[in-house]
Design a protein around this nucleic acid. Structure first.
Lengths: 189, 189
DNA sequence: TTGTAATGTAATTTA
DNA sequence: TAAATTACATTACT
């Protein structure tokens, strides 16, 4: 990533003013009355991973950048996903694997979801090794890993989050069962 | 609130160190071999939301904190989960909802985190409406909201903090996208 | 179906 | 308070 140039420009946008004011009108008036069915959900694309610019590589990036979307599709997608599952399946029968792949990617884009990363065996091995030692790697370690494994730092961070969740889940489950079984044995006495 | 009697006992243990970070050793050394360092258990500071004055049973209670760290013995099977979901679900049928809740609470206490609040649709709607008008509500407005929505004032405050962060993020992202796309169009000319 | 990458967001920490 | 990070519930892909 590294291109978050704007991070440095810490504008603190007029906190004062915004704070100043609106005590003049009551919450009731704001709450108004009706759930205005105004559409809140369909907001948020902004797929930063689609950047064709240069995710990694001057050196002939490995990362085929994904999309090249119909430029019209840059505009918000109203409501829900426009593409039905059946159509997808139907479509998939008639195209090559690579076409399917790119179709899926495009679909992912439409759906606003990053295409699932498939870690290699080696990458996972390394990540697991690091995890055993430190399950909360700081930014520096993550960046280092990203470089060495040729992954984005974000993937690393997500991986560790999910890994911790997995670990916790397994702890929870075993503990839960222990409690349960001790309960059972006590009851059956 | 109001029961912050124990506030004085807020030891803030060693959170800092965990963050203090492993910048001293390289990934190679980790991959390599030796776990030089024990990683950092997030130690919980003073949970005021656990209402009772003495949530801790002194009597050799089960209150061993749940280790989040990989203790090697707990992570044996490269294979899979030792415990099936169904069994747990099956068991859960036999406990009341409140028991389940308190179980969750306790787990959260162990891990030092307030149980995640699930806002209702209506609460969010109201909050969003207020946010549109004023994204920095003062204490008075927050208290008012808290009463009307039946939430703690703290939840309100946190909600607004997170909401502002979200807004800022989305601004940043859309700006990023605009820059990106203008770059692209310029390049393709 | 299962495992898990990805998402959204409430909560926490730091400065 | 912002910003970064974490936990956690969910979603959805493989």
């Amino acid at each position: 990533m590294a291109l978050c140039a704007t991070a440095s420009s810490r504008t603190r946008p007029s906190v004062a003013e915004s704070k100043a004011s609106p005590r003049s009108f009551s919450i009731e008036s704001i709450l108004g009355l009706e759930p205005k069915k105004e559409s809140n959900p369909p907001i948020p694309p902004a797929k930063l991973w689609t950047d064709p610019c240069c995710p990694l590589g001057e050196d002939g990036n490995p990362r085929l950048s994904i999309p090249i979307l119909p430029s019209s599709s840059l505009l918000p997608h109203p409501g829900n996903y426009p593409i039905s599952e059946e159509r997808i399946l139907k479509y998939e029968k008639y195209v090559s694997a690579s076409e399917r792949l790119s179709f899926k990617r495009e679909l992912s884009w439409y759906r606003g979801r990053r295409p699932r990363t498939a870690f290699t065996r080696n990458q996972i091995e390394v990540l697991e090794n690091v995890f055993r030692v430190n399950s909360y790697p700081g930014i520096d370690v993550r960046e280092d890993l990203a470089r060495k494994l040729n992954l984005e730092e974000d993937r690393i961070q997500i991986w560790f989050q999910n890994r911790r969740a997995k670990l916790k889940r397994s702890h929870r489950e075993s503990q839960f069962l222990m409690v349960k079984s001790s309960l059972n044995t006590n009851l059956s006495k």
